[in-house]
Every structure is written in C-alpha cells, then in structure tokens.
C-alpha cells in the first residue's frame, strides 16, 4: 500500500465536505463521543487516517459511515471543527454511488427504501414505508415485525401520525413531473460540483 495522496484527492473532489479530512489531528474525541461507537469497525478519525493512507476499498466498503445517526456529538467536540457528520454521510453517499457500499447494511437498505418511497409520489408515505421496511425479509418476518411493533403503530395512528387509508394510493404531489425534474437537476448540480459525470 502506498502513501500517495490519490485517494485523499478523490475524497476531496467527490465527497461532501471531503476537503476537511486532511485537517484531522487524530485526537480521537469523535470516536469516543459517538453513541454508536462500540458498533462500528472504524472510528471517524481512523477513517480519515485510512483515507490519507490510501486505503480506498477498505474505506468505501466500510459500514462505519452508515452507522451515523446525525447526533452531531462529534462535530460539537471536534477541536479542529471538522464537520464529521457531514463527511460521514458524504462518504456513505459516495460509496453507494460507486457501488462499493456494504450490500446488506441495514441503514443503507432503509435509506434506499426511504428514497424509493419518496421519489414515487414526492411525499413520504409513512405506512407504505413502514410496511416495505417490515416486509423486506419476506412475508412471515414482516408479520412478526409488525406484531412486535404493533403498540407503537397503534399509538401513531391515535396520534394521527399514520393513516391506514394511505395504503390505498395515499396522496402525492400535484406536479410529480416537476418534482422529478427538480431531483434530476439537483443531482446534476451536485455532480457538476463534484466533477462527476454521472452517479
């Protein structure tokens, strides 16, 4: 493995806030502050070091950045003011687009489900989102999941957070085409900003 800056440059060019990676001084306060710390393989500061060390595949296929819940503890504490949360999401996004992200990673799967659900009608259909998430591993498991979560589901219904009628179509945006155009344009701008041809 070589200590070329190639991968660092790639990250700087393609990853949201990637230009901050070089500013890390390896204090580790982000790693210690992350509530999901014990659950991932590489801490943020270690990811940054790996980027500098050119460990491209290990970084992009890591599940670490998918574990971020955006609690912002790391950003608040980072003595170098690195926007760590954003970098982690940026890395996840980039790995996903390159197809290097870990395949069955649950956060990633959910994110994909969420996106597909959203893009379909321009609004999130909570019920369908919930169901497609529950039933991602087949029908039987879906029922089990739904039963396990039924109290919460009923509570949400009572609080009018979920409407069972949404199952039947649900409501969407009036100008769905326009919405899709907006999304396409946004991607185009982002890609241009990052110098990518197509994600």
């Amino acid at each position: 493995m070589s200590y070329r800056n190639d991968f660092l440059k790639e990250v700087e060019e393609n990853v949201e806030e990637g230009e901050w990676v070089k500013m890390c001084m390896q204090c580790g306060v982000c790693a210690g502050s992350c509530p999901f710390g014990p659950h991932w393989e590489h801490s943020p500061q270690k990811i940054f070091m790996m980027i500098r060390a050119g460990e491209r595949i290990q970084v992009l296929s890591s599940d670490s950045m998918w574990m971020c819940t955006s609690c912002y503890n790391c950003i608040v504490r980072c003595p170098r003011k690195l926007p760590i949360t954003h970098i982690m999401h940026g890395l996840a996004n980039y790995a996903h687009r390159l197809g290097l992200a870990p395949k069955g990673q649950p956060t990633r799967v959910f994110a994909k489900t969420f996106w597909d659900n959203l893009v379909k009608t321009g609004r999130v259909n909570e019920l369908k989102l919930t169901l497609s998430h529950y039933f991602r591993d087949g029908f039987i498991q879906g029922i089990r999941n739904a039963l396990a979560m039924k109290d919460i589901g009923l509570g949400m219904m009572k609080a009018r957070r979920i409407n069972p009628m949404e199952l039947f179509g649900g409501h969407g945006l009036q100008d769905l085409e326009g919405f899709h155009a907006i999304v396409a344009k946004a991607r185009e701008i982002e890609d241009r900003k990052k110098g990518l041809k197509n994600g």
Partner: peptide, 14 residues
C-alpha cells in the same frame, strides 16, 4: 502553523 500546513495539504502521520 501546523493547521496552516494541513490546509495546504501536508499529510501528518503518527
């Protein structure tokens, strides 16, 4: 000065 070097892209490795 250390920070400035990092901004310029100097890589530091322990």
């Amino acid at each position: 000065f250390y920070r400035s070097a990092q901004e310029k892209g100097v890589i530091f490795t322990k």
